[in-house]
Amino acid sequence: MNGTVGPVGYGASVIEHLSIPTPAGDFDAIAAGPQDGRPVLLLHGFPEAAVEWEHQVARLGGEGFRAVAPDQRGYSPGVRPDDVAAYAMDELVGDVVAMADALEWRRFDLVGHDWGGAVAWWTADRHPERLRSLTAVSTPHPRALGAALRSDEDQALRSQYMRDWQSPRTEERMLADGGEPLRRMYEWKVPRARVDDYLARLSEPGALTAALNWYRAPTPRDRIGEITVPTLYVWSTEDVALGSTAALDTENWVSGPYEFQMLEDVTHWVPEEVPEQLTALLLDHLRRH
């Protein structure tokens, strides 16, 4: 694993830039905290990158944890395969385990938002022995979401975008007018400089296609089961993509210790819209488990 590159001060801690080598390629990542600190891996969503967790990584590092947030498959230039099937859930979960192995983490806490939340749920199902705890932000348990898609017209309408984005012209539409359609997705809740950074990253050749391949990849053949590891699920009431039906049903798919936190008047972009509030919930969860 490469050393730090251009550490960036953030509050009382320091953000490092890492390269994590795996059989699939090298993942770019940000990190903070002592090397022997309790390990926490944070997975970003679409259309974002590891820096969506910058506040949480810095705070966790300052509290003595070893926090690492990678740019996931397709977002890291070193792991950007062309094949759509390479973005299937088995591959994404495999990346989590491979990164933990490269970091020499036998057990770790896993945090995910949006697509990163989906990967985190599946990792907790497939590899519970590796996880000390799970924190899912925005994304409900996949079985709860599946049930809502079948029974709740509101959730079916909210999720229509997932089918629409499988169109081969989606990249062209999102990047039209200097990326204005993509910019509007953040609902003016993510800092402008951060949105500029995301647009620059996703405008790189092949980057947006790779990110959208997460939506185009084959769905898992196996069914996810109940989650046994201690779980915190954070859902926000103004999330345009994920409604209350699946959020409230998620508790029925966790058999281990479970905590549900509902954030009033907060949109989908929780880690960046209310970073202090989310970090406080996360720290409390980690300290109790």
Results as ranks from 00 to 15, higher is better:
V8D: 13
I20A: 07
P21W: 08
T22R: 05
P23S: 14
D26L: 11
F27N: 00
A29Q: 03
A29M: 12
I30D: 04
G33Y: 03
P34T: 07
P34A: 15
R38P: 01
V40W: 04
L41V: 07
H44K: 12
H44Y: 09
A50M: 14
A58K: 06
R59N: 06
G62H: 13
G64M: 09
G64A: 11
R66M: 04
D71K: 06
Q72C: 10
P77H: 12
P81L: 14
A86D: 15
Y87A: 05
Y87H: 05
A88L: 04
D90L: 12
E91F: 12
V93L: 02
D101T: 08
A102C: 12
R106D: 13
R107Y: 06
F108L: 07
L110F: 11
L110S: 04
L110E: 09
H113D: 05
W115H: 07
G117H: 04
W121A: 02
T123S: 10
T123K: 02
R126M: 10
E129M: 10
L131E: 03
A136Y: 01
D164F: 14
S167I: 11
G178W: 07
G179S: 02
W188K: 00
K189T: 02
P191I: 03
R194A: 14
L199S: 04
L208C: 12
Y215G: 08
T219F: 14
P220R: 13
G225E: 14
I227R: 01
I227H: 06
T228R: 15
T228C: 14
V234N: 00
W235F: 02
T237V: 03
T245Y: 11
T250G: 13
G256Y: 10
F260V: 07
P275D: 06
E276K: 10
Q277L: 05
A280E: 15
L286P: 00
